[in-house]
Design a protein around this nucleic acid. Structure first.
Lengths: 226, 226
DNA sequence: CGCGGAATTGATGTGCATCAACTCGGGTGG
DNA sequence: CCACCCGAGTTGATGCACATCAATTCCGCG
């Protein structure tokens, strides 16, 4: 992380460990006053925002162990999206007020915070590219690879994992209809790229996925060059 | 801004004013070492990243007077996108190293910086919603309204402005083909929502645009509920 | 065991990309 | 100052990727 041991300790001294949360629990809601940032220790959390008025929602992200959420709330001092637990989760809470005071005295922590915020921006812009230019196939491939990499970073299997989100949520996140997501899973399965059993996924042909993810001439597709 | 006068002065003391830049000039390129953040004083700048390998690009944003760019580079210490001047521009440069030192001593500046980074994240997530769920019509309406608001914030006319970007760039930014953008301009024009003459735009029916922007039943459209 | 939401699968429709001319304007050089 | 050119923009015709609609099927759970 680039932090000294003593700094890590100081950081930990202000962190609160929350009781375990369960599927469906809300971590925070759109409009809630901004109190703290959250770090996922185990489990999965999704962030989402309403879209239109007919109750539909846009999934903004999935947060796996080791990942931070709540950064959106700093600007207006209140959350602009909601966060819901998808899979029994342990979450740490970092009171922002106190964190800020600490950061002001610890340059390396400050730096780290800037980096995190910046990384978030970079990731969002990768997502813009995905939504703006990629085909359905490319999107799902990219999504699966992203999960794979993020899990492996935490020492979990990069090829064998559990999708704690529904097909519907995957679709919303990727800008696709549920049915399209379902069909793609089936197709990837048939093509021997992955094994699917309900919510368990086993990535078999990583190389193929990467090819699909970059630019995907499945048959001889029309490039969306825009 | 929420900064005291003296703090503003201290900030200004580290800012460099660059010579005027002209259409086509590069402010920075993907891969360039991260040195500074930039503030647009006048003119317009676009940020973009390559996409695929066939030379096409994804436009990531347009930066108007008063807006900041370069935040993406903090994370990896190098720029992950390129920035090009669209319209003769005056740009201020904020050396990040020195800014960071100053911010560590000025809490209000620190706070402001966090806010800016957070705001960027919020805006990106609004863009995700746009690209993930909105129709072509909604996208263009949203885009025009966004320009309108941002210009008026700077005291410029919110209803009468010049598009310094090409139709192609608008399309890339909104995830649409040039032709679609062109057709929409024509349609909005015919419907009396705006006046278009080449790159000059005059917003006539703001209310209509806002309706279109939120959710657009042009005829009796199919909701993309995802 | 039986209900209900999630997922799959198939049939159909459509919004927008793509392909293809054509026009327009602005710059260049004769 | 006009003829030419070339890239940007417009407009029309066509096709396709994916949404939408419509049944089933498949669990998970009370």
């Amino acid at each position: 992380m680039g932090l000294k041991m003593e700094d890590v300790e100081r950081l930990e001294s202000i962190v609160k460990r929350s009781r375990p949360l369960h599927r469906g629990d809300q971590l925070f809601r759109r409009g809630d006053r901004f109190e703290a940032l959250y770090v996922v220790k185990t489990g999965t959390v999704k962030t989402y925002a309403p879209s239109g008025e007919h109750g539909s929602e846009q999934v903004l992200g999935f947060h796996l162990p080791g990942e931070l959420l709540g950064l959106d709330a700093i600007d207006r001092d209140c959350h602009v999206c909601s966060a819901k637990v998808l899979e029994t989760a342990a979450i740490c809470e970092i009171p922002f007020q106190r964190f800020e005071e600490l950061a002001a005295r610890v340059p390396s922590l400050q730096r780290q915070m800037y980096r995190l915020l910046s990384k978030e921006i970079v990731q969002d812009s990768e997502m813009l590219l995905l939504l703006g230019k990629k085909s359905a196939e490319e999107r799902l491939a990219t999504f699966l690879l992203s999960l794979s990499q993020r899990l492996s970073r935490r020492g979990l299997s990069p090829t064998d994992f559990y999708l704690s989100m529904s097909r519907h949520e995957i679709g919303s996140y990727l800008g696709l209809a549920v049915e399209t997501v379902s069909r793609l899973f089936t197709r990837f399965h048939e093509e021997g790229i992955l094994g699917v059993d309900r919510k368990h996924v086993r990535l078999i042909d990583l190389a193929a996925l990467e090819t699909l993810s970059d630019n995907a001439p499945s048959t001889h597709r029309h490039q969306r060059s825009n």
